[in-house]
Amino acid sequence: MDTQLVSALISGLGMGSMYGLMALGFYITFAVSGTVNFAQGSSMMLGAVLCYTFAQTLGWPIWLAVPVALALCALYGVLVERLAVRPFVRRGSDAWLMSTVALGIVLDNVVMHTFGKEPRSLPSSLAVSPVEVGGLGLGVYPLQLIIPLVGLALAAALHLVARRTRWGSALLATSQNRDAARLMGIPISRAVAGAFALSTVLAGVAGMLIAPLANVNSDMGTLFGLKAFSVAILGGITSAWGVMIAGLLFGLAESLIIMSLGSGYTHIITFGLVIVALALRPNGLFGRAEVKKV
């Protein structure tokens, strides 16, 4: 039992921090622009696929493959904003919800036809030989231990960037008061595009981190993206730390349910918990209740 529990906790934290990273992406664009890329799972897939292509197919060294892949992710984020979000927001339409889904379908299928239909695995020396933890007779891949650390480190770095850098605080300012931010000379449209780029990069990082553990293919992100969305909502999409913590909770809940009840009921229970949590706290677990202005 102990072995199982430790194993469940480790994989729960790992998955949870990935949900958290992607959910942070939702949080960032939502805070700055009130919109999200509903097909964020595709962004995650893009990160993994590009990294695989550069590192494996083209044989680039990893220090080159990762940044180039992330740069392309950022570019895709800007494309999403330009093509599927901005035209709608400008005309006061909510159809961006749908257009981002449409763009996601396009990306998934383009990747399927170019990258291939076969699932691949990004080899990593960190995911081949398990290391023993605490004499429990259970091995853990080093990557599984690294993933939550990287996830939390990235969240912390993001926090620092937002607080300490010129563009970071510009994003924060935009999220708090758009008009006032414009009066500071902050170019809003660039800030929003930047937010989408950043959010896509975060999803891409999640995709790369998970690629050696999971399989890389064109629809690897679909369900993952939806779960990350529920994490973002659960955390209260207006609170960065809340989103990250909700990610960890969601991941832990998922692996504990699999551990105790088997996988058949995972979706029923996790999504059921989401409904209950939102019914009890309509602004998310960590979202601030908005004061009813009359």
Binding site: F229, S230, I275, L278, N283
Partner: peptide
């Protein structure tokens, strides 16, 4: 709940029904 929160609850509902 409102807005994205409502969207999420309904998404969760459809998954629960399917599973």
């Amino acid at each position: 709940v409102k807005g994205p929160y409502l969207a999420m609850i309904t998404i969760a509902f459809s998954f629960i029904v399917q599973h």
